[in-house]
Amino acid sequence: MKSFALFKKDWESELRTRYAINALAMFVLVTISVILFSVGNEQITEYLTGGLLWVVIFFSAMSGLSRAFVSEEERGTTLTLQLIASPSTIFSGKLIFNLILVFLMNIAITVLFSLLFESFVIKNFSLFLISFLLGNIGIAVSSTIIAAIISKASSKGTLYPVLSFPILLPLILTLLELTKFSMDGKTLSASYVEIGVLFSYDVIMGTASYLLFDFIWKD
């Protein structure tokens, strides 16, 4: 309940300042436009569109998801948060905010890809949906804890994608594989290993982030 109240505060703040939403929307539009211009009239392969989807998602996440903690640090309100909530409440509240943002962003990107790229065809939709859900959770959890780490650093903008890349790499690679499977029309049962990897990644990142947040947050 307290976490939800923190999420609500962040959401109302976001609706008034539009910092993350504008940054994400502009990044998505610009990136997809650049891809469309560079592709021109050429027919690109299915796998390439699947790969490009996750590239756009990764860099879009890097452009807006650090907002959760960086905005508090920049405005000097980190101390206020420390004075009104426990670390677990803060982490959960920020995680809910990033989850909503990631889902909204990724749904928009995927819909745009389906509309703009003819070769982006998903044959096994349920497999894509499962990987999309688990992938979004993984991106949200990782980007939340990385945002908490870099919010204390001086060069936040550069550090965020640099630190995120190795942490998100196993997730992105698995998602690329699963997107390829869903484009091939592979069955769910043939993709259990990759889904298991995604699920394990989410559980491990979620647990580690929750346990470590206290140390990151305090000093």
Partner: peptide, 13 residues
Amino acid sequence: GFVSPYLFLYDEF
């Protein structure tokens, strides 16, 4: 309850 010059509340509210 804590008050200090380096404590900031939310400007957008």
